[in-house]
Amino acid sequence: MFGFRIQDKTSSPSLAALGIVERSEARAYAALIATGWSEIGFGYHGTVHAHPDHPGVVVRFARKADGFGDYAALLRTGFAGSDGPHAPRIHDLHVSRCGALMTVGARLSDPPRDAWWLAYAHAVIADHPGVAMDEGVRDRFRVAWPAHEPRIDHASFDGIREAFRAAWPGYEAYVAALRTVSPQGLDPNIGNVLVGIDGSPVVNDPLCDDGYGLWRSPLARGLARYAEVSRRLAGEVLGRLGRAPVPV
């Protein structure tokens, strides 16, 4: 999918500036299509849209606020490398009352499947020091890049690793910094590395699908956690009552 890179808010194209008014879960997708924002990509929860009158940006729409919302929130708070060439640039973010997420960002492109550095860029995201890689992830990696094992220190990365580090010395540091601030492990999905306008690899949408609500204020997150715990406790109580023996 296409992604986003942070930009100065004073010059960023917002949803309002792009004329996007409808942002609800039920009607936003149809409204985007009707106003010329054609779908150019999709994921588990979201679709990405481009418009011929706005070639430099894309709009992402998700019916539920997913991990991309958390990623956008982390980028906006700032951490090491979040303003650099390997982070997507977010222009605007909106979460509706029903939880739909819309973002505006600079357009990125898919890297060539035979890019010499692509396997290593994904291996950096997939690597978790001291933790064995999930076999499903390893299998997907083998299918995409059969010549490489998905471990950074494997001999098959000799040469590629060194050349990559020379070309983009800040990439691994950015991924490491993102891993330290992320509320969950990074997702090594094959589509999570895209290319910026300068040709650099950009880590796009690396958090898992279930959002943690980092775009909300600390108070709103606390209230949401309280409501979730209350619902869970109420369900347990009702479950126990339902299992209670019937007096005779």
Rank of each mutant, 00 (worst) to 15 (best):
D139N: 05
V104P: 03
E135M: 08
G99H: 13
A119C: 06
V104H: 04
A132W: 06
G99W: 05
D134S: 08
L108S: 09
P129L: 12
V137F: 11
A123S: 11
V124F: 02
P112E: 04
H128K: 07
V137T: 08
V131M: 08
D114E: 15
P111V: 12
A123T: 13
A123F: 07
S96H: 13
D139H: 03
V95E: 10
V137W: 00
A100E: 03
P111L: 14
V104R: 03
S109F: 07
V124A: 01
H128Y: 05
I125Y: 00
D127S: 15
R107A: 09
S109D: 11
R97D: 15
A126S: 04
A106P: 02
A119L: 06
P111Q: 07
S96R: 07
G105P: 07
D134K: 14
T103C: 15
D139P: 07
S109N: 09
S109L: 11
W116V: 15
L118Y: 14
C98R: 13
V131D: 05
L108A: 08
R107W: 11
V104A: 06
H122G: 04
P112A: 08
M133L: 14
W116E: 10
A100I: 08
G136T: 13
L101W: 02
R113L: 13
S109G: 06
C98V: 13
W117K: 00
V124N: 03
D114Y: 10
A119F: 03
S109H: 12
G130Q: 06
S96V: 13
E135K: 08
A100W: 12
A126V: 01
I125P: 02
Y120M: 05
P112S: 14
D127V: 04
S109I: 10
A119T: 02
C98G: 06
A106T: 14
L101D: 03
G105W: 01
S96G: 10
D127G: 05
